[in-house]
Amino acid sequence: NKFNKEMRNAYWEIALLPNLNNQQKRAFIRSLYDDPSQSANLLAEAKKLNDAQA
């Protein structure tokens, strides 16, 4: 399933972002599970926040 693969990839990328705190990571990951079709958008948002907090 395409969404499962995208979701799994996004999950690990988000989990490993160095500048997000655990609460932020959990919120993004919860959103991934709520709507796997938004994986790419959620990952992009997480990366933006990660960069902003660098």
Rank of each mutant, 00 (worst) to 15 (best):
N1A: 03
N1E: 09
N1R: 04
N1G: 05
K2V: 08
K2P: 07
K2E: 14
K2A: 12
F3G: 10
F3N: 13
F3E: 11
N4K: 03
N4G: 07
N4C: 10
N4W: 15
K5A: 06
K5H: 04
K5L: 02
K5W: 05
K5T: 04
E6C: 06
M7F: 12
M7T: 05
R8Q: 10
R8N: 05
R8S: 06
R8W: 15
N9T: 15
Y11E: 12
Y11I: 14
Y11H: 08
W12K: 14
W12V: 09
I14A: 00
I14N: 00
I14M: 06
L16G: 14
L17S: 08
P18K: 15
P18H: 10
P18Q: 10
P18D: 07
N19R: 09
N19P: 00
N19Q: 05
N19C: 03
L20Q: 00
L20N: 00
L20E: 00
N21L: 09
N21A: 06
N21H: 09
N21K: 07
N21V: 04
N21D: 13
N22P: 12
N22F: 15
N22L: 13
Q23N: 08
K25G: 00
R26H: 04
R26G: 05
A27I: 06
F28E: 00
F28I: 03
F28D: 00
F28V: 02
I29S: 03
I29P: 00
R30E: 02
R30L: 08
S31W: 12
L32W: 02
L32M: 05
L32A: 01
L32N: 00
Y33G: 03
Y33N: 03
Y33M: 07
D34A: 13
D34H: 06
D35C: 06
D35H: 13
P36N: 04
P36S: 05
P36I: 06
P36F: 08
P36D: 02
S37H: 05
S37D: 05
Q38C: 04
Q38I: 07
S39C: 03
A40K: 11
A40P: 11
A40H: 08
N41F: 13
L42G: 01
L42M: 08
L43Y: 04
L43H: 02
L43A: 10
A44E: 06
A44L: 15
A44V: 13
E45L: 15
E45S: 12
E45G: 05
A46C: 03
A46Q: 00
A46T: 01
K47E: 02
K47P: 00
K47Y: 13
K48D: 06
K48F: 08
K48I: 15
L49V: 09
L49N: 02
L49A: 07
L49Q: 06
N50D: 08
A52G: 13
A52W: 12
Q53L: 10
Q53A: 12
Q53N: 07
A54M: 12
